[in-house]
Design a protein around this nucleic acid. Sequence first.
DNA 1: ATTATAACGAACTGACTGTTGTATATTATA
DNA 2: TATAATATACAACAGTCAGTTCGTTATAAT
Lengths: 191, 191
Amino acid sequence: MKPIKEDRRVRMTKLILRDSLLELMKKKSINKITPTEICRQADINRNTFYSHYSSPYDLLMQIENALYEEIRQSIEQSLKAENISALLQEICQSIVKNGELCRIMFSDHGDKDFLKRIIYIAHDKSIAEWKSFTRHSDTEQLELLYTFTANGSVAIIQDWVQTGMKTPPGEIARFIEKASNHGLEAFLSPR
Amino acid sequence: MKPIKEDRRVRMTKLILRDSLLELMKKKSINKITPTEICRQADINRNTFYSHYSSPYDLLMQIENALYEEIRQSIEQSLKAENISALLQEICQSIVKNGELCRIMFSDHGDKDFLKRIIYIAHDKSIAEWKSFTRHSDTEQLELLYTFTANGSVAIIQDWVQTGMKTPPGEIARFIEKASNHGLEAFLSPR
DNA sequence: ATTATAACGAACTGACTGTTGTATATTATA
DNA sequence: TATAATATACAACAGTCAGTTCGTTATAAT
């Protein structure tokens, strides 16, 4: 994909630009951040920015893709294990590992669809697993149910990250599973 | 609140600006739409725009607030009925009534938090109803569960609107209820 | 030490912003 | 219908930013 190794200066420049964008994203959303602003923050010539990225959004995408790839790889074994529960937990653990970055990415100024992209890694496996449970496999309805649970899960994780990831990842994963599988019912009066 | 009646010219100007913004929102998001662009579309002087709105976002907020108010009022009676199920259905029906507008507002270029705002009308009532079902009322957990179901519901409705609102509102409301109360379990093999 | 190239600095065009001042048109109403 | 109020149009302003170009300087790779 990439050339064997980038020039040391290039690596440094990209690193600074990356950090500068993330710093700015603590205060405002990507669509309010200008190239000029990033370069001011980074103390780097605007020209140099354009020689590496076409826009702030382009820079953000490269940051997101790198994080996505990292998370995807760290859950690869769980994907093979065919175990949704383990997969969910692995995702949460990966998020903890990249805590600082995730806190920015999942904040109000972050990309709201990025986390959804991660959760959707589990899509095919979930649908398949669900289908194995039932005979009347109404695919359309299961897809709709996946939309429901995926978006619910995203919201839970987002809330969890934004409030400092206090509860352990395993607990969050278990909560999501309960809510997905049994809904309100799972949280009613003691049996 | 408002003066008794606005000048006829003002009413017309605002209407045109509103329609022009919505027209543009079919193609791009609010943060990419400039005042200049709206005025070009509306064939109205930029000056005039600024005498009514401070920004495209300001205009959008006024559109949203009006829609929000309309929906809120039409479900007011359901709120009194203390019936979450009826409330959900009423929300879906209101959306159908404002179909064209909602299709824009809930699209990819729309405001992703607006629908969430509507769903959250049901927040207090839901939590209260849930609490009445259980003795061990762990409020924090119920709040988390509400986050889960609310965001799942928003996604379902969004999907429903974007795909042309083919299924009747009652059916959508019922699906959401099933998913919220029983999760996957509700859709498994026939009993 | 030499060569390649990354980063810088300055300058340019074009677009849009938010504001001001003035002229023109339309409305409300007496 | 004449008059006063005011909404809109038109024109011009300084300021910011976007991308791009070109020549210079600095730094890395070999």
